[in-house]
Amino acid sequence: MPSAAIDDYLKTIYHHTEWQSADITPSQLAAELGLAPSTVTEMVQKLAGQGLVSHRPYGPIALTQTGRDRAAAIIRRHRLIETWLVREFGYAWDEVHEEAEVLEHTISDRLLEGIDARLEHPRFDPHGDAIPDADGVVHREPFVLLGEAGIGHTGRVLRVADRDPALLRALDAAGIDVGHTLVVTERDAVRIDGGGSVALPDGAAQAVWLSA
């Protein structure tokens, strides 16, 4: 199997449990990857045969330790590249995901570690996702999804999902970015850094995570 295809599967499985605890199902994995369920089932069987995932028929899919280590390594590459593009080349946070998808498979380990050193070993990418260190270890504080935070909850923006560039631009226009403090005033509105109430863009409640 092409290495990039394996990495895409492992990354998607890894992503699914970063900000919630339930393992991914085959149908969810197929939807995330935009592939037919039969294609995904065949690939998952091959990944299980290589010791990268554990899976029983019709059950959820989980990474083995070997699979988790490989996923963390490729995610480290992706997120360091995103951070590099923002800091060194002036990319906006809605522009880096697709670039990093290409570059993560092409740059050498030597260049990657040079990028890490130049950026002074960042722990988070521009969207607030934790960057695994060279050993695959991540550091993340307790969190709550904005849509599940109660009225009156106060928390710093820890992470914003990066898959929808239009939503990222809408959040940026509203002033909602990683590191800002939000107070939930209504189900669809927040105060930012003590300012007035701001309406949430559509989809924000399921794309923003706050400190718990």
Rank of each mutant, 00 (worst) to 15 (best):
M1F: 10
P2H: 13
P2E: 15
S3D: 13
A5C: 09
A5K: 13
D7E: 15
D8S: 15
K11S: 12
K11D: 11
K11W: 11
I13M: 04
I13W: 02
Y14L: 05
H16N: 09
W19Q: 10
Q20T: 10
S21N: 13
S21K: 14
A22I: 11
I24G: 03
T25C: 04
T25I: 07
S27E: 14
L29G: 00
A30S: 11
A31S: 15
L33H: 00
L33K: 05
G34L: 05
L35D: 09
L35C: 08
P37I: 00
S38M: 11
T41D: 13
E42L: 14
E42Y: 13
M43Q: 15
V44Q: 04
A48I: 01
G49L: 09
G51Y: 07
V53H: 04
S54L: 12
H55M: 08
P57F: 11
P57M: 10
G59S: 13
G59Q: 15
P60K: 06
P60I: 06
P60F: 07
I61R: 02
I61N: 03
A62Q: 12
L63D: 00
Q65T: 13
G67C: 01
I74R: 02
R77W: 04
H78V: 02
R79V: 02
L80I: 02
T83Q: 13
W84G: 03
L85R: 05
R87Y: 08
E88G: 04
F89Y: 15
Y91W: 07
W93F: 12
D94N: 12
V96S: 00
H97F: 12
E99T: 12
E99H: 12
A100S: 14
A100H: 08
E101Q: 14
L103E: 08
T106L: 15
I107T: 09
D109C: 00
L112R: 01
L112G: 00
G114M: 12
I115N: 09
D116R: 12
D116Y: 06
A117I: 10
R118G: 05
E120F: 11
P122H: 07
F124M: 09
D125R: 01
P126D: 00
H127R: 04
H127D: 07
A130V: 03
A130W: 01
A134R: 15
G136V: 07
V138G: 05
H139P: 00
R140I: 02
E141G: 08
E141W: 02
E141N: 02
L145Q: 14
L146N: 07
G147T: 05
E148C: 10
H153F: 11
T154Y: 11
R156Q: 15
V157N: 07
L158T: 05
R159E: 05
R159F: 08
R159W: 03
V160T: 06
R163C: 09
P165C: 08
P165F: 01
A166K: 14
L167R: 05
L167C: 02
L168F: 10
R169W: 04
R169L: 07
A170E: 12
L171H: 01
A173E: 14
I176P: 00
D177M: 11
D177L: 11
G179R: 03
G179S: 03
T181H: 06
L182H: 02
V184I: 08
T185M: 04
R187P: 00
D188E: 12
D188P: 03
A189M: 03
A189C: 04
I192M: 03
I192S: 06
G194I: 02
G195Q: 08
P201C: 03
G203K: 05
A205R: 10
Q206R: 14
Q206W: 09
W209K: 01
W209H: 06
L210K: 01
